[in-house]
């Protein structure tokens, strides 16, 4: 988990830094799809049954896990999504007392957030990572060169890489069940959830729903929808009864992560104006020096 002081300052410096960026920062435009598919995860409802993990494993044809999905010992360690598990449930105890004065555990489902302006897709040199119109951020191994820049870029540290494969390693992450969405089915994890903790829908409607829940039961929820503003918005949204930093959610700025780099690239390389200008300038300088050389015979030298 991030230490909060450092991450706050980090966010502060990041935001301050980006706002001092020259001219073109304003020219940047989000390419986020309007009202894409989304999921709302209500952590106060999740019972930690790990049925979603099991369903995800099944629909994605992933290998059977070392410990069965019923084995509660798995929850003892904090896990991250891997090449063979696109989603994991982690258990946190944060001092909230439940019935019988026992510490009430909180379960957190982790998977790709399907950012509205995904850093991974902006970074990918080949466009193998791409934000689809329906909201899913997909990966096409046939375009991937294996540079792993998407892993560097993702602020949630989601993509996992098949380092052990020699010829055709792939980036692995939650697909938002893209193929299922295309044929009108729910994501497998949302479909199976027995506690209604994962609600599937359209992003705008789910934000309305999330706000309604917070409004109606203010004691149950912290008034923060994680993913509404984080990194410019994500397609996966979370509600929680305890502050998100206690549950290992990264403390992130509301600016889209690709904005600074895309602004810099646009400012400098739009229509290749700066390389062209520099080329012209240097050519002029060279022409002048060469003319001077010719006027002073005997000083001319070099092969150029």
């Amino acid at each position: 988990m991030i230490t909060s002081r450092r991450s706050f300052l980090q966010v502060a410096t990041t935001v301050a830094g980006a706002s001092t960026l020259p001219v073109a920062a304003r020219a940047w435009e989000s390419r986020a799809p309007d009202n894409p598919f989304a999921c709302l995860v209500d952590l106060t409802r999740c019972i930690g049954c790990r049925k979603c993990e099991e369903a995800c494993n099944r629909v994605n044809d992933l290998p059977a896990p070392a410990q069965s999905f019923e084995d509660l010992r798995t929850l003892k360690s904090e896990r991250r999504p891997t090449t063979t598990a696109y989603t994991v449930i982690n258990r946190y105890t944060t001092g909230v007392l439940g019935s019988g004065h026992r510490q009430q555990p909180i379960y957190v489902k982790v998977q790709c957030m399907h950012c509205q302006d995904p850093a991974c897709a902006s970074a990918c040199p080949t466009g193998a990572m791409a934000k689809q119109a329906n909201g899913a951020v997909t990966y096409d191994p046939s375009q991937c060169i294996g540079c792993r820049y998407c892993l560097i870029a993702c602020p949630f540290q989601i993509p996992a890489y098949e380092y052990e494969r020699a010829l055709t390693p792939r980036v692995r992450k939650c697909t938002f069940c893209f193929e299922r969405l295309e044929v009108g089915k729910l994501p497998a994890c949302a479909a199976i959830c027995p506690a209604d903790a994962i609600v599937f829908g359209r992003r705008r409607q789910l934000l309305v729903e999330a706000k309604r829940r917070i409004r109606e039961r203010p004691a149950r929820y912290v008034s923060h929808i994680y993913g509404e503003h984080e990194v410019g918005g994500t397609s996966w949204l979370y509600l929680s009864g305890v502050p998100f930093p206690h549950l290992a959610f990264p403390n992130l700025p509301s600016q889209a992560i690709p904005r600074p780099t895309e602004s810099i690239q646009h400012a400098l390389f739009h229509n290749l104006w700066s390389p062209a200008a520099l080329f012209a300038l240097l050519a002029a300088v060279m022409a002048v020096t060469r003319r001077n050389d010719d006027e002073r015979p005997g000083t001319k030298g070099g092969e150029s």
């Binding site: 970074a123 990918c124 040199p125 080949t126 466009g127 540079c147 820049y149 780099t261 895309e262 690239q265």
Partner: peptide
Amino acid sequence: VFQNHRSVLFE
């Protein structure tokens, strides 16, 4: 072949 012009790494 698959150029992503927004990517710094591509450039």
